[in-house]
Simulated assay, not measured.
Amino acid sequence: MDAQPATSRLFLALWPEPAVRHQLREARDAWQWPRGAGPVHADKLHVTLHFLGRVPTVRLPELLEGFSVPFEPFRLDLGQPVLWPHGIAVLEPLSEPPELLALHARLRDALPALGLQPEARTYRPHVTMARRAAGAGIPEHGPAIGWDVRGYALVESRTGDGGAYTVLREYS
């Protein structure tokens, strides 16, 4: 029986610096969570650009290079708490900067050349605050979290050891 090749579970994301991460944690903690809710740990708060799924680990060097696309810094103002269907609590942007949408499109266009399939669903930028949060108390709109986005990252998600995230490369 052949051994399965090692894989890495990957996604591309806007990865916040410590000051923004602190504000995201405060925004997460302003919710009233029902019993059984799973608030996202502060070190995992981010905005996903593309979820890539499991990819053979041997392909990492190629992917690390292939995800280097033109990037323009932009400001992202987060501040719209929303409870999505299926108990997903999120913080959405107050508006979608054109530079964010352009970055998302450039990365989407890079996927087929790397043998990866873009997701079919419409992109909805957000920070996931919690899962299993049906019935959560949504906080009042507080001040927006102003994030001067200076880059993006390729991140690995490990399912064991508490589901650690590791930034494999930052792009700016």
Rank of each mutant, 00 (worst) to 15 (best):
D2A: 15
Q4I: 15
Q4D: 14
Q4R: 13
F11P: 05
F11Y: 02
F11M: 04
L12P: 03
L12T: 02
L12A: 03
A13L: 03
W15V: 06
P16K: 04
E17N: 11
P18M: 11
P18N: 12
A19E: 09
L24H: 00
L24A: 00
L24D: 00
R25T: 11
R25D: 11
R25M: 12
A27R: 03
R28M: 06
R28I: 02
A30G: 14
A30H: 13
Q32T: 15
Q32I: 14
W33M: 09
P34L: 00
R35T: 15
R35E: 15
G36W: 09
P39G: 03
H41G: 15
K44V: 07
T48K: 08
V55H: 01
V55I: 12
V55Y: 04
R59S: 13
L60A: 01
P61Y: 04
L63S: 05
L64S: 05
L64Q: 08
E65V: 13
F67L: 07
S68P: 02
E72Y: 03
P73M: 09
P73C: 01
P73L: 06
R75A: 14
R75S: 15
R75H: 13
L76Y: 03
L76C: 01
L76K: 01
D77M: 13
D77R: 14
G79M: 08
V82R: 12
L83Y: 09
L83F: 09
L83V: 08
P85M: 09
I88S: 09
L91A: 02
E92N: 12
E92G: 06
P93D: 10
P93V: 09
E96D: 14
P97T: 03
P97L: 04
P97E: 07
P98M: 09
L100R: 00
A102G: 05
L103Q: 03
A105N: 13
A105G: 11
D109I: 11
A113P: 11
L114W: 08
A120P: 11
R124S: 10
R124C: 08
P125E: 03
P125G: 04
P125M: 08
M129T: 04
M129P: 00
M129Y: 07
R131C: 08
R132M: 06
A133F: 03
G135A: 11
G135T: 10
G135R: 07
G137R: 02
I138R: 05
H141S: 15
G142V: 08
G142D: 10
A144E: 02
I145M: 04
W147K: 02
D148I: 12
V149G: 02
G151A: 12
Y152W: 11
Y152M: 11
A153P: 02
L154M: 10
V155I: 10
V155D: 00
S157G: 11
S157C: 11
G160Q: 13
G163P: 05
A164M: 11
T166G: 15
T166Y: 13
T166H: 15
V167G: 04
L168W: 02
E170N: 13
